[in-house]
Design a protein around this nucleic acid. Structure first.
Length: 588
RNA sequence: GCGCCCGUAGCUCAGUUGGAUAGAGCGACGGCCUCCGAAGCCGUAGGUCGGGGGUUCGAACCCCUCCGGGCGCGCCA
């Protein structure tokens, strides 16, 4: 719908230019919108005002020149007027609405791929939780966002891959291993010292120790994934057998060297944690195409540092190796190799981003947690220092989530182990509701997640409002087939009975889907989808109240046309919910 | 102290990148089921867009400043 109008407008602009009424440096991007107040126009544009500014001509004159030069032999525009400060308002022929509906239904009205690009290969890195504990609600928010973004990119003609980065090296992993070891000793009846602050005190660590002692519920993951990631020197035949049967009291005798033991415990813990994270994500209907472990970087950390050195971005000071990130607008330079010779997390991250680039991705998108704020500038600096354009890396922060219950925020203290995990959230509110509420808000606003509202299966919950529209249509379709009213195909259906204002409103709303999808994809802001879904559902419910689909047998043509209309609307609702990974029930 | 984010209806939030009389959901109030699902529809009330200044035909949006809230500022990850 918008595209047709856009083409007419472009022609009008060119016509006006030929006549010398306007001088255009280039054809501007034309924004079309549904006026807030309905009845004012079917569609309107502010292009005259945009041009007026550029050309320094009164908007009214520009609008007049455009309107007078619209091709008049079209079957689209019935009426056009200029209003307010220079808006051009269009009213369309019924025929144009009917044609638009036919296109929507046959899938022609999909978002057209970007004009300027053929389609990019995009790598989306998100969730990226440490394998030191269960996923939390911010991880869940990132999961919903990243998954939906990936799906949006696929629809708009790009290719997106979802990747989960596992930080399986470093001091936090060592702390995890020590925590597991301590719990193991505790099971042995030994008294253990109080945990230092940076150890892990959660229940899951006790579970982990118990599994190592008594045998894992799914030991096969160590033989497959464990061996693949960490090799047979870690997961030897003997150790695999012990993980299956349980080490009982033999952990310290079988692996007497402390360093080896801690490494083994760390690797075991990571494989276990990663698998439990993965299963929660799968329950959330999110499958990552790839899981990348920091330990797999190998010598590429040294290599990428060598590249930076070649470009002259490295220096040595106080016994450490530094990256001069201030060259690229970071506040301060960053350490890559510590005094003690160990690389920092950041240097691994540089190697990781270099590796992503080497795999041939045109664009890297990272969704990070709110505590990674400081990483944006330095990572972007690194990308540039490696010789890539700055804008091929996009980093977005996902802000905090506060869970509300009974009108009060739930206290989330990680130290005391009192935090709600992603799994508990899913138990509590379900997958559809969790996804909906995460996607419903702009990513960088702190999200207040009202557990009571999300759980509520009633009219107060916008998710059910939208799903109800879908179920209601399904119900009409069931009734239609019982009454023998057949749903005609897009090519054979007679749509001329569709002339009612409510019908046209619904078609207009449905026709918006391509531009909504493009907006959400290009701005990386999926919250436009939930808004649109509510609007579409509302327009449908409104139509439903005003127009009967089934009924009067003498009006069979009307019934059939309306049936076609609602069936198409059902498709659009399902498409938008599907993009968000939310189900479209036929019955509720 | 420095940097980033936020401040819009009683509550939770949109606002398509500077455009029409600032919108939606929930909550409040008033109507609508002999008929396809009332988990619905229609209507009413509700605003100094945190305050002030500036830029221009025009500002919730851009600039400056102040106030309030959050987060970050490790040779942790």
């Amino acid at each position: 719908m918008e595209n047709k109008v856009r083409i007419l407008l472009e022609k009008a602009l060119l016509n006006a230019q030929e006549k010398g009424l306007l001088t255009l440096p280039e054809v501007p991007a034309i924004a079309l919108e549904l006026p807030k107040e309905k009845g004012r126009a079917d569609l309107s544009t502010n292009v005259a005002m945009i041009l007026a500014k550029k050309l320094k001509v009164p908007p009214g004159l520009v609008a007049k020149a455009i309107v007078e030069n619209l091709p008049n032999d079209n079957h689209v525009i019935e009426k056009v007027d200029v209003a307010g400060p220079g808006f051009i308002n269009f009213f369309f022929f019924n025929e144009f609405f009917q044609e638009t509906l036919r296109e929507i239904s046959s899938g022609i009205q999909k978002p057209t791929p970007k004009v300027s690009q053929k389609g990019e290969k995009i790598l989306l890195e998100f969730v990226g939780a440490n394998p030191t504990g269960p996923l939390n609600v911010v991880n869940a928010r990132a999961a919903a966002l990243g998954d939906t973004l990936a799906r949006l990119f696929e629809v708009t003609g790009d290719h997106a891959e979802r990747e989960f980065y596992v930080n399986d090296e470093g001091s936090q992993i060592e702390n995890l291993a020590r925590s597991v070891e301590a719990r193991y000793l505790e099971l042995d009846g030994k008294t253990i010292p109080e945990f230092p602050e940076d150890w892990y005190a959660g229940e899951y660590v006790k579970d982990l120790a118990k599994f190592i002692r008594d045998g894992f519920p799914k030991p096969e993951i160590f033989g497959t994934e464990g061996k693949k990631i960490y090799g047979e020197s870690i997961f030897t035949k003997e150790r695999l057998a012990l993980l299956r049967e349980g080490f009982k009291d033999k952990l310290f005798t079988k692996i007497s060297d402390e360093k080896t033991r801690l490494q083994f415990l760390a690797r075991t813990a990571v494989i276990y944690m990663v698998n439990s994270q993965r299963s929660v994500l799968e329950r959330f209907r999110l499958v990552f195409q790839s899981w990348f472990f920091q330990s797999q970087l190998g010598d590429s950390v040294d290599k990428s540092i060598a590249v930076l050195k070649e470009h002259g971005h490295i220096y040595e000071q106080d016994g450490a190796i530094w990256f001069r990130s201030t060259t690229f607008h970071d506040d301060k330079d960053r350490v890559l190799i510590r005094q003690d010779g160990r690389p920092t997390y950041f240097s691994a991250d540089i190697a990781y981003h270099a590796y992503k680039k080497k795999r041939g991705f045109d664009r890297l998108i990272d969704l990070l947690g709110p505590d990674h704020h400081g990483y944006i500038a330095r990572t972007k600096a690194a990308i540039q220092a490696l010789g890539y354009p700055e804008d091929t890396l996009e980093i977005y922060l996902i802000q905090l989530v506060t869970l509300m219950s009974g009108g009060k925020p739930l206290r989330m203290s990680k130290r005391a182990g009192e935090f709600i995990t992603m799994e508990e959230l899913l138990d509590e509110v379900g997958i559809d509701a969790a996804r909906w509420y995460f996607l419903n808000r702009h990513r960088d606003t702190h999200l207040e997640f009202d557990l009571d509202l999300a759980k509520l299966q009633s009219d107060e919950n916008p998710l059910y409002y939208v799903q109800y529209a879908h179920a209601r249509i399904a119900s009409i379709l069931r009734a239609a087939s019982e009454q023998g009213v057949k749903l005609a195909s897009a090519s054979s259906i007679d749509l001329t009975p569709l002339v009612h204002a409510a019908e046209k409103e619904l078609i207009k709303k449905m026709a918006q889907i391509p531009s909504i999808i493009r907006l959400a994809a290009e701005s990386r802001e999926p919250h436009h989808l939930t808004r649109y879904a509510v609007e579409l559902a509302r327009t449908f419910h409104s139509f439903y109240t005003e127009c009967r689909v089934l009924g009067d047998p003498s009006e069979k043509k009307v019934s059939q046309a309306r049936l076609f209309l609602v069936a198409s609307c059902k498709k659009v609702l399902a498409e938008i919910l599907g993009l968000m990974g939310i189900s479209s029930p036929d019955k509720m």
